[in-house]
Amino acid sequence: MTRLTDRIFGLVTILVAFMYIMSATQIQASFLSDPVGSKTFPIIVAVVAVICGGVMILRPDAEPDWPEGYTLLSIAISVALLIGYSYALKPVGFLIPTAVVAGAISYQISPRPRFAALAGIGLSIGLFVLFKFILGLGLSGLPKGMGL
């Protein structure tokens, strides 16, 4: 079995679309009804998606060149960091998470530790000044209760 990526993606698409259809059939009808209703359009779209997924399984394109080993790990680490950043931004403030995450992403793109650390700190302070004092966004810089 070659060209696995497209086939797997097609299969996943079909599964997701079926789940979507199942979920759409559960939509509660309301007293305000129209001939089409809330379910029809989502179901039509999901059926088209199932057909497209089927075409991808039957007629897959050539395999994309996926990154391997270390590169894949770098991307996974970056995703994890960005998820952490999403949770941290509100309670911890802008400066510290931004310096850490920007530095880490910089390191993943070009592995020079000192450069990455400087890039992280520089971006964090520079963007904070830009957002807070020049553009006037309501952004807190430090953890709650520590000023700024």
């Binding site: 960005l82 530095g103 992403i105 910089s106």
Partner: peptide, 17 residues
């Protein structure tokens, strides 16, 4: 290595604000 972290952070702050 400076540009892309910057773009990411600007994107996040934009959506967050």
């Amino acid at each position: 290595a400076v540009l892309m972290p910057g773009v990411t952070m600007i994107s996040f702050v934009g959506i967050y604000s």
